[in-house]
Amino acid sequence: MIERLLILLALTALSSGAYIGLKHLHMRRMERITAVSNHPTLLYFRSDNCSPCMTQARYLEQVAQNWNGRLAIQKIDADAEPDTAQKYGVFTLPTTILIDTMGKVRQINYGLTNVQKLSQQLNVL
C-alpha cells in the first residue's frame, strides 16, 4: 500500500509539474506576441461549436459592465481564425487570456471561467 501511495504521489507531482510548466511556457511564449495598450485586454477564444461559450459570453458581458470601459475585450472565433488560435496556443474552448497594460500575459484560463474568478484576476493587474 505504501508503494502505491508513493507511486500516486509521484504521478500527482509529475502531472502538476507538467501542467504548471506547460502553462508557464504557454504564457512565456505569448510575451513575445502582445503589444502595449491603454487598458488591460481580455482575449476570449470561442466558437459556435462550443456549448459553454454562450455562458462565458454572458459572464464577460457582466465583467465588461463592472469594468465600465476600462477593459478591452477581444472575441476571437477559433473556427474562423484557426491561425490566431494556434498562435496563442489555444487547445480548448472557451479560453480567456488576460493581458496587462504593458502587454504582458498575466493569466490564462482554460475552460469556462466565472465572473468572480475573472474579477479577482483583473483586480491584480
Partner: peptide, 12 residues
C-alpha cells in the same frame, strides 16, 4: 452525421 449523435452544440 453518425446516427444517434443528433445534437449539435448550442450556439446563439
Amino acid at each position: 452525421g453518425v446516427p444517434g449523435f443528433a445534437h449539435s452544440p448550442i450556439s446563439r
